[in-house]
Simulated assay, not measured.
Amino acid sequence: MTSVAGVRVWLVDRLEASGALTPDWRQAFLDVGRHLFLPDVFWASTGDGYERCDRAESPERWLELAYSDVAIVTQWDDGADSGQREPTSSVSMPTMVASMLRDLDVHEGHRIWEGGTGPGWNAGLLARRLGAHNVVTVELDPAVAAQAAANFRALDAVPTAVVGDAADGHLPGAPYDRGILTCSVREVPPAVIGQIRRQGALVLPFAPLFGGGAVARLTVADGTATGPFTGSSAFMRMRQQRYQAPPVDDYLPGDWPGDSEHEYTTLSPLDVVDDWLASFVVGLAVPDVYYRRSGGGDMTTLWLFDTGVTSWATVDFADGASRFEVRQSGPRRLWSEVEEVVRWWMKQGRPGFERFGLTVSGGEHRAWLDDPVNLLTSARG
């Protein structure tokens, strides 16, 4: 029989060996067991889809997955059982939890705000490390918040848990020395920035509309937040920032191809959208463009749209082709914009996530390469 203590030490040792877990966090990870925040039935993201695991049926497998480096889904479809099967609450991969807490760079006496309590493991770790009185965590979903509150009862240090909108921060506890989001955003909430002390830090997963995602570590000063990305990430999006795309007919009244202009490209559309980093760079540079796919197998069509509902484009991918058919319509040439970004990124030597950064000021988001003065738009120009 596998022991909880044994698998907990096994996981912590591996997190520390990988560099994700720093020594100052080791005891908190040993004291605050991940299994305490998991329901009896969960779905583990194992790389081959989601593995359903029932503790009553497979207690050994349940414990093994609880202390594996995988994300575990605890709620689907906002709890509505709509049949869409979209994950809407989870316990993140231990590597991601540890690395984001490392990026947070907390010190004794720091006050912490967390947006997105989820099942509560991250908040429990923070409370164990810094003291429960120094941690405020906010969760929008009342059912998820209630489950987190029940989970917290197993802890000696229980953080202040609030049911509310993380986009609003939590003003009664402000100002905070550090802030952390456990859901991805494409727009950093201004209220959150305003509640972090000057020279405080805000760590969050940033996911542009187009695709990709990375963790940003932003330093706050006078209402502005700026800093680098620290590595790749994939998180559920903040509920209020999920994009509801208009119907295709709003872009293309009548039959395809409409009034589109016809051309070809040698850049495969799948080399853009199937590359997490390339998608991320496109999303940073062209934040108001998104895509959809149709078809599959030997033939895939990539559809591009702008949020202003003015322009669209399609690019056809066929196995074995060396050039790909493009159609573009509207005042913007969306595929041309995307291709320009990708060609620029390739010319720079395909820089990784850590060479990019983000500045947020007055609600405006500006992405940059290597230095805040080197904006992506000007770099491409």
Rank of each mutant, 00 (worst) to 15 (best):
P189E: 09
G120S: 05
F235H: 12
V7Q: 14
L104S: 02
G231D: 01
G330S: 08
P287R: 05
L376Y: 01
G115Y: 04
F353N: 00
E339W: 06
F317A: 05
G120C: 06
S99E: 13
S184L: 03
W303E: 06
G330D: 05
A132C: 00
P172L: 01
S90D: 07
S329N: 12
R355C: 02
D370R: 11
C53L: 07
E364Q: 14
Y243F: 15
S336N: 12
S233F: 09
G254P: 05
E114C: 08
D13R: 14
A321M: 04
Y290M: 10
N122G: 08
P331R: 07
D24H: 10
V185I: 13
Q244T: 11
V289M: 07
L171S: 00
R26N: 03
G124K: 07
P257R: 11
R186C: 11
S90Q: 10
S82T: 15
L125E: 12
A379K: 11
V41Y: 06
N374S: 12
G194F: 10
L334V: 11
A367I: 07
V188M: 14
G381N: 14
Q328M: 13
G49Q: 08
S378N: 08
V220C: 00
V106A: 12
W303P: 01
D274M: 13
T88H: 10
D259N: 12
W335H: 03
V281T: 04
D306N: 06
V12M: 03
S311D: 02
A28Y: 02
F152R: 01
G194W: 10
L204G: 04
L155D: 11
Y251P: 03
A20E: 10
V286S: 07
Y243E: 13
D371L: 00
W303T: 04
H110N: 15
S3R: 14
W113A: 01
G109I: 00
Q348T: 03
T219R: 02
P159G: 00
E139D: 03
E64S: 13
Q241S: 05
V7W: 11
G227M: 13
Q241K: 02
D370S: 07
A313T: 03
G254E: 04
A174F: 00
A17K: 14
P159T: 04
L130D: 02
A225W: 13
A66Q: 07
L101G: 07
P269D: 13
Y176I: 01
P172Q: 01
E86C: 02
R355F: 02
A321K: 09
T95D: 07
P331M: 05
S378Y: 06
W303N: 05
V248I: 14
P142K: 11
T182H: 04
L202A: 02
P246L: 15
A225S: 05
T265R: 09
M96R: 08
D370P: 06
L369K: 05
G231R: 02
R323A: 12
S260R: 10
Y291W: 15
M100R: 00
P142V: 09
G223W: 04
P142A: 11
S82V: 04
P287C: 09
A216H: 01
T265A: 03
G47W: 04
D177L: 00
